[in-house]
């Protein structure tokens, strides 16, 4: 059950999307999101969608996997869609009780659902094709200038890297503890809210203890290897901008520009 959540998962591969510099991908994602929120009507949405489909196609990530990662967000998407459907004023098509569906409402709901789906897919595509280490390296380099303002960029990116790394581990651990307590007759499904909250204790206590234990062990292991933060630290893989990075960035810039211009034309 918990295994369905693929947040932060990385699918190793060697496609062009995998090989792009992580900085390129991060900048592209920001550009993509800006374009997505600038998009207004079908033509602009179509452009952004084409960009997404191109990236998904090149990455060889099965679209099914991407869509499956939407599962936990299904409720948010449905509620957003319904709100847009019922609360947009315009030409009334159907009316019953206090509900009223307008033509504009249908369009707005469809576009809003499309927007959230595309937003999530784009973000997941980044984590699916970029290893956590590459991702945090890229982030650290991009945010590098902030170091002058005494922002602990390296420490933050290291924390992010560790957090991403341990999501699947903790998921697995949770699954195991749930099974073990179920085997002792723990019941998580019946009873009122208070009882159910209490029933979570046998899971949360061992989970917290094991998280602290892991943190302790990790800290010891890092110290054993003389880790002492970012000062003077070099990288095994020096990221470098290659031709395909410039091409990809150019394409991204073209997308943002095209969407911005078309928007002013009301498309």
């Amino acid at each position: 059950m918990l295994k369905d959540i693929t947040l932060g998962q990385f699918f190793p591969g060697s496609t062009i999307v995998h090989r792009l510099d992580p900085r390129t991908k991060l900048v592209l994602l920001v550009g993509y999101i800006v374009a997505l929120f600038t998009a207004r009507w079908f033509v602009t949405y179509g452009l952004v969608l084409a960009f997404l489909l191109l990236a998904v196609g090149l990455s060889r990530i099965p679209p099914k996997t991407l869509l499956r990662s939407m599962k936990p967000l299904l409720i948010v998407i449905v509620i957003t869609g319904l709100l847009n459907l019922f609360y947009t004023s315009g030409q009334v098509l159907v009316q019953f009780w206090i509900f009223r569906i307008t033509r504009e409402g249908i369009v707005a709901a469809a576009l809003m659902i499309l927007r959230i789906t595309m937003l999530v897919c784009g973000t997941f595509l980044l984590t699916y094709t970029t290893s956590p280490i590459a991702l945090t390296d890229g982030l650290e380099l991009l945010l590098g200038p902030l170091k002058r303002l005494h922002v602990p960029v390296h420490e933050l990116s290291m924390m992010m890297c560790i957090a991403l790394r341990f999501i699947p581990t903790l998921m697995e651990e949770t699954d195991k503890i749930i099974s073990a307590q179920k085997a002792r007759g723990a019941d998580f499904e019946t009873g009122n809210l208070l009882r159910r909250a209490k029933a979570m204790l046998p899971i949360l206590v061992p989970l917290f203890i094991s998280a602290f234990r892991r943190a302790d062990e990790l800290a010891t292991a890092m110290e054993c290897r003389c880790y002492h933060g970012g000062e003077g630290r070099t990288r095994l893989r020096q990221p470098r901008f290659l031709l395909h990075d410039f091409l990809a960035l150019g394409l991204g810039a073209a997308l943002v520009a095209a969407v911005a211009i078309l928007r002013t034309m009301g498309l």
């Binding site: 195991k176 503890i177 099974s179 073990a180 307590q181 179920k182 085997a183 002792r184 007759g185 046998p202 061992p206 203890i209 094991s210």
Partner: peptide, 15 residues
Amino acid sequence: RFRVGLVFQYPEYQL
């Protein structure tokens, strides 16, 4: 679940 008891691997982490 009560009639068939199951002790997982490394069960000490479930206390």
